[in-house]
């Protein structure tokens, strides 16, 4: 971590501890409720304010959302082409279990 980063963090630390502000750590705790649109208006205001002022959290949130969308899109498929082939043995076993039950 460079000296300028360290200085910036110290300044941010002081600024974000002022009344009406939240720290990056508190911002982290609000993310889930923010994305589910469950943050009360007062908390949403300080959350939005923090996004404007903190480049790190702004970029972090963008990456968090992108990673979530990427994951949902990569896994959200029941399309036949992406499904595993199933051996006939398993179908036979299911049919036999159905008879036995």
């Amino acid at each position: 971590m460079t000296r300028s980063n360290s200085l910036r963090r110290r300044l941010h630390g002081r600024m974000f501890s002022l009344p009406g502000m939240i720290t990056c750590n508190e911002f982290e705790d609000f993310i889930l409720a923010y994305l589910d649109d469950e943050l009360p208006r007062s908390k949403r205001r300080v959350f939005d304010w923090h996004i404007r002022l903190c480049k790190e959290c702004r970029e972090y949130l963008a990456a968090y959302i992108a990673s979530l969308e990427l994951t949902k899109k990569a896994l959200a498929t029941d399309e036949a082409a992406s499904l595993p082939d199933v051996p006939d043995d398993l179908v036979t076993a299911v049919m036999e279990a159905r008879k036995a039950s």
């Binding site: 941010h12 720290t23 990056c24 508190e26 972090y60």
Partner: peptide, 13 residues
């Protein structure tokens, strides 16, 4: 996060 609650991890666009 550091002792002031500031984010420590690298971020990017």
């Amino acid at each position: 996060f550091d002792g002031n609650g500031c984010r420590l991890d690298e971020t990017w666009l």
